[in-house]
Simulated scan of single mutants.
Amino acid sequence: MGIKPSYIKTIGTTLLAKQRENFSNSFDANKQQLGSSASIQSKRVRNRVAGYITRKINTKRHA
């Protein structure tokens, strides 16, 4: 789909390092978790971070 901006990767990596147990391999569940754990104002940025986290979790699980 394209290259992720560095701020998406930074936010996602930081949240995964601190709160890995709160995130799952489901995009919708991660979206809800971001709504409660991070103060991201933009819906688009929240969705992109949730997608990045979901992708990271799924690739680590399959590797």
Results as ranks from 00 to 15, higher is better:
14 T>P: 04
31 K>E: 07
17 A>Q: 05
37 S>V: 11
6 S>M: 13
18 K>S: 09
44 R>F: 13
39 S>W: 02
37 S>E: 14
53 I>M: 12
37 S>Q: 14
61 R>V: 05
44 R>G: 12
31 K>M: 10
33 Q>S: 13
13 T>C: 00
6 S>G: 11
8 I>T: 02
46 R>C: 10
44 R>E: 15
22 N>V: 10
27 F>N: 05
59 T>P: 05
50 A>D: 03
13 T>E: 12
33 Q>I: 14
35 G>Q: 07
34 L>Q: 06
8 I>G: 06
45 V>D: 11
38 A>T: 01
1 M>F: 03
38 A>R: 05
23 F>Y: 13
35 G>E: 10
43 K>C: 03
53 I>H: 13
42 S>I: 08
12 G>W: 06
16 L>C: 08
20 R>A: 13
22 N>F: 12
2 G>M: 04
41 Q>H: 10
18 K>W: 03
45 V>L: 12
36 S>M: 10
12 G>H: 04
37 S>T: 10
25 N>R: 10
51 G>P: 01
10 T>H: 05
36 S>N: 12
62 H>N: 15
21 E>G: 09
43 K>D: 15
11 I>Q: 00
35 G>T: 03
51 G>S: 10
28 D>H: 01
10 T>Q: 03
11 I>F: 00
43 K>W: 08
13 T>K: 06
35 G>P: 05
33 Q>Y: 04
28 D>R: 07
36 S>F: 09
47 N>Q: 14
19 Q>T: 00
23 F>N: 08
40 I>Y: 09
48 R>S: 00
8 I>Y: 05
19 Q>M: 03
33 Q>F: 01
15 L>W: 01
29 A>M: 11
56 K>T: 14
41 Q>V: 11
36 S>E: 14
58 N>T: 14
28 D>I: 12
54 T>P: 04
18 K>H: 11
16 L>K: 00
24 S>G: 08
21 E>M: 09
19 Q>Y: 05
16 L>V: 02
60 K>Y: 11
3 I>W: 03
11 I>K: 02
57 I>D: 04
11 I>N: 04
3 I>L: 13
60 K>F: 11
52 Y>P: 11
63 A>N: 14
58 N>F: 12
27 F>M: 07
19 Q>A: 06
10 T>D: 02
56 K>H: 15
61 R>I: 04
19 Q>L: 06
47 N>S: 13
54 T>S: 05
27 F>S: 03
29 A>E: 13
24 S>K: 00
46 R>H: 02
58 N>A: 15
10 T>I: 02
1 M>T: 07
1 M>Y: 00
46 R>G: 09
55 R>P: 01
36 S>C: 02
53 I>F: 14
48 R>F: 01
56 K>E: 15
62 H>Q: 15
37 S>C: 07
36 S>P: 05
49 V>H: 04
34 L>T: 06
1 M>H: 07
35 G>M: 11
19 Q>E: 06
43 K>E: 14
38 A>D: 07
59 T>E: 15
40 I>M: 07
24 S>N: 00
16 L>R: 02
36 S>W: 10
7 Y>C: 09
28 D>M: 08
42 S>N: 14
45 V>G: 08
38 A>P: 00
8 I>K: 00
26 S>G: 02
25 N>E: 12
6 S>R: 11
8 I>A: 09
50 A>V: 04
54 T>N: 01
13 T>H: 05
38 A>L: 09
